[in-house]
């Protein structure tokens, strides 16, 4: 499919679910993203690797419309995100899941209410029985059906992450954006979360962008890795290709 973009005609394959071109974002003098380009194809898992503060979280927040970029093109599920109306933005957001670094579970709500929240907002026509069935299914998927009436404060770090993942998946999104999904977890729990991401991705045929520093997680989930250095797509390739790279900046990540 050929699409006319602000920077001329670009060839975009029909399998592309996220397309970024020349994305720029600055905070004051700090230029976080400088002409960043990325293409996520259907069913693909891309890991964005970069140092803390390099703009990885800013990048995925730009994709979902939480942060407005200074310039550039963002196309999500064939919808241009610049100048998008609130209704269209909500429709896109119902098809894109976002797993927050801090889990972002609502402290004042039970696990059930946390999971019901996106359903009640995006699927207002859904019956009570259907909502209850989906909540149960989402909790079973992450292996925590017994936590349904618990408060987030009663859960361990790993359990909170699983519940957050269940909430992200409850709308059956086509794309999932993971913001450091294993940060703050012990290696065993982090491994379990990585396995769960792969398992659920296969089950629901999702495409994903994963931000992570955890090289074990990166190795497991990444089909392609994009190095975000100096606000640009510095280098990209598979885990093995980048591990074999002679570039000093890239090597540092794989040595640690």
């Amino acid at each position: 499919m050929s699409l006319k973009t602000g920077y001329g005609t670009e060839t975009e394959t029909s399998g592309t679910v996220i397309y970024l071109e020349n994305l720029c974002k600055s905070f004051g003098e700090n230029k976080v993203l400088r002409n960043f380009n990325l293409r996520l194809n259907k069913g693909e898992n891309i890991v964005i690797l970069g140092r803390s503060g390099s703009g990885k979280s800013v990048l995925i927040k730009c994709i979902i419309g939480l942060i407005k970029p200074d310039s550039g093109i963002i196309r999500v599920l064939e919808q241009d995100m610049s100048g998008i109306g609130l209704r269209e933005l909500d429709q896109i957001r119902s098809r894109v899941g976002f797993l927050f670094q801090s889990n972002a579970l609502y402290d004042s709500m039970t696990v059930r209410e946390n999971l019901e929240f996106p359903l009640r907002r995006h699927r207002r026509e859904m019956s009570e029985e259907e909502v209850a069935r989906l909540v149960e299914e989402a909790l079973t998927n992450v292996g925590l059906p017994h936590t349904i009436n618990m408060m987030p404060s009663e859960l361990s770090g790993g359990m909170r992450k699983r519940i957050a993942l269940a909430r992200t998946l409850i709308l059956k999104p086509e794309i999932i954006l993971y913001d450091e999904p294993t940060t703050g977890l012990d290696p065993i729990t982090a491994g379990e979360i990585s396995d769960l991401m792969i398992e659920l991705g296969k089950k629901y045929h999702t495409s994903s962008i994963i931000i992570s520093h955890d090289m074990h997680c990166v190795k497991k989930v990444a089909e392609k890795i994009v190095m975000l250095i100096d606000g640009k797509c510095y280098q990209e390739g598979t885990y093995e290709q980048l591990r074999a790279s002679e570039n000093e900046a890239v090597k540092k990540f794989f040595e640690s």
């Binding site: 909500d90 976002f98 927050f100 670094q101 972002a104």
Partner: peptide, 20 residues
């Protein structure tokens, strides 16, 4: 305190991406 903690733990952002 409630809105402050919701802000710093990204709960407000989560609400926004949940269509609210």
């Amino acid at each position: 305190a409630e809105l402050g903690s919701m802000k710093v733990t990204e709960q407000i952002d989560a609400m926004e991406v949940s269509g609210t």
